[in-house]
Design a protein around this nucleic acid. Structure first.
Lengths: 214, 214
DNA sequence: GCAGTAAATTAACACTGTTAACTAACCATC
DNA sequence: GATGGTTAGTTAACAGTGTTAATTTACTGC
């Protein structure tokens, strides 16, 4: 019964070929810049062959997106986490911004493109809320740790709200950089400086007065 | 010589009709969702008529974009500015986020879509850096005022860097809201709460310790 | 060798932005 | 008043898009 196995392996191989080709094109050209025909051309298949593996263009890139979320999670997990809760949050922010700087087109697709709300499927549900697989859950966990350690002011005790705000701050730095860094309207300071300042002032703004860190 | 005048007036009227139709469609459907043919249909012209007035789709929406920047500036100018430098910065942030919440599709086009860097033309150059016409220049001015008033810490004296960071923080709140507010992955807190928390912690993080206001 | 299955193909549809060639209306001049 | 020039607006067409239906091809199990 090795035939069925081989067939499945072959199928998943061509599926991966499609994904790889699509990723390479998408990363350099962006979502709208890539056509199904060009993806097909790259792997020397007919355009419609892709539809055997993916329902439509959106699903193809949703799959890419899912892989990229996993990659983001890898980046986050692989960076060493400091013991101090505040330093840890700083490190999470840094890693996040680095991810966006390294994979801008993925980042655009993941966080800057308004998508029609897609119902989470089984695979998604498995990831959701698990700090080891879900970067947002990891952030929330780190925030809760900081709250429990008594680092933050009395008004700042809602881990969900704090997480969303910290996420937004890092997102603001990297997304504005991606969308506007070439705009001559603004004399842009280096990305690292902006990132460090953002992490510095947001965390400082959360801290209990007197605990003025670093 | 009233003929030439009338002709010009007529031309600018149809130009406005095109812009109005395009805006209405664009606001509800987004940039990619609108086709030149549908814009033309809406004003009962042939699709190619638009090309008499605008070189291509991009230029049409660039013009819309310019009008939206002016509208943003109006919103900013019309809100009463508190005398206290910190309250003023808070008010600027609030107005900015409100603008994004009210005109999400414009905001997407203005600040969330990576554009090929367009050389500023004459009209642009007139606006650039003028605090009365340029919202970013206005922010920078308000930041400089706060620095001059001695509100901020010693490490925080670069008005350009501070402006870019504050911009990024407000941008983070509103852009993440636009792109991800329907994502079931996250238990979103109300937008106003996130906005207020962001403004609170960033400004607090900039302040001199002890000056911890409000 | 034959039936069945599933991958992959060709042909086509209804779109898209955009260009070239043309029409029709208007104006200034002879 | 006829003539030529300017220009807003038209039609027809091109090359490209995502996607579907019908068809071919290749291979397996019997």
């Amino acid at each position: 019964m090795g035939v069925k196995e081989r067939r499945e392996r072959e199928k998943s191989e061509t599926r991966d070929k499609i994904l790889d080709a699509a990723r390479e094109l998408f990363v350099t050209e962006g979502y709208e810049g890539v056509s199904m025909r060009r993806v097909a051309e790259k792997i020397e298949y007919s355009p419609t062959a892709i539809y055997v593996y993916f329902a439509d263009k959106n699903e193809l890139f949703h799959e890419l997106c899912r892989q990229d979320f996993a990659r983001l999670q890898e980046v986050m997990q692989s960076t060493e986490m400091p013991a101090d809760p505040i330093d840890r949050l700083r490190q999470i922010g840094r890693s996040y911004i680095q991810f966006g700087a390294r994979f801008p087109n993925h980042y655009v697709f993941m966080f800057m493109t308004p998508h029609p709300a897609q119902e989470p499927d089984e695979e998604d549900r498995e990831i959701m809320g698990n700090p080891e697989k879900d970067a947002y859950a990891m952030l929330k966990w780190a925030v809760q740790e900081a709250i429990d350690a008594g680092c933050f002011r009395d008004e700042v005790q809602d881990a969900e709200l704090v997480s969303q705000t910290l996420w937004a701050s890092a997102h603001g730095v990297i997304s504005l950089n991606i969308a506007k860094c070439k705009d001559p309207w603004v004399e842009w300071r280096p990305l690292e400086d902006r990132a460090e300042m953002m992490l510095d002032i947001t965390l400082r703004g959360l801290l209990l007065p007197g605990k003025g860190g670093k």
